[in-house]
């Protein structure tokens, strides 16, 4: 499919999607709502540049439902854990904060997948995405407790790995395989 047909297909789909969103946010269906929804949607499509945000990258990524479910469960558990530990941090007077910024390299992922991983980093314990650089893609996170940088790095890698397993390409998956023994031992 060439670019133009892809675009002409995308705009009506987006329009319908925005109108549905608008209707469900209002919570009830009236013609006034439908009309204002259509007006707002057309305005959005015309005025805002909407880059392609498909989770499957153009390089053969796909959604694996079971893996996606595993990622979702792991993610929700981490979000709860993040909030409980933050709440604990807030109510106890001790200050154990030791901040720092780590770079997590991510290879062969679509923009949408990088966005997903960066967002997931922000919502999980002790880490907050503050910058994403490209060529090569590296996600930089601010870490609250950097007592053991390699453990923090391993945790973040684990989260990224689950996301890539759910949505990424086979090439992207390769980066999470352990390196060959010859390289691993000095």
């Amino acid at each position: 499919m060439n670019r133009l047909t892809a675009l002409s297909l995308r705009v009506p789909v987006l329009l319908v999607w925005f109108v549905v969103l608008w209707e469900s946010l209002w919570g009830n269906f009236t013609f006034a709502n439908l009309f204002s929804g259509v007006v707002v949607s057309i305005g959005l499509v015309l005025l805002v540049r909407l880059p392609d945000a498909d989770l499957r990258s153009y390089r053969g990524g796909r959604v694996r439902p079971l893996r996606a479910a595993i990622f979702l469960v792991y993610f929700v558990v981490k979000v709860v854990q993040a909030n409980v530990s933050l709440a604990w941090e807030v109510v106890t007077p001790r200050n154990t904060i030791e901040p720092g910024i780590l770079g997590i390299p991510i290879r062969d992922c679509s923009d949408a997948l990088v966005t997903l991983i960066a967002n997931a980093f922000t919502l999980t314990p002790g880490s907050l995405t503050i910058e994403v650089l490209e060529d090569p893609t590296v996600i930089y996170v601010h870490v609250l407790h950097l007592h053991d940088p390699e453990r923090v790095r391993a945790d973040l890698f684990r989260l990224a790995e689950l996301a890539v397993k759910a949505f990424g390409t086979t090439e992207a998956l390769a980066q999470f395989r352990p390196p060959p023994i010859a390289e691993a031992t000095p």
Partner: peptide, 30 residues
């Protein structure tokens, strides 16, 4: 929410680097 935090964090980092004794791989790579 994470996108908002991301934008805020990146703006802060451009203006206000971390202290010297702290790990900052972003400043290093930049």
């Amino acid at each position: 929410a994470p996108v908002g935090a991301h934008l805020l964090g990146r703006a802060i980092h451009q203006r206000l680097p971390l202290q010297l004794d702290e790990v900052d791989e972003l400043a290093r790579d930049l």
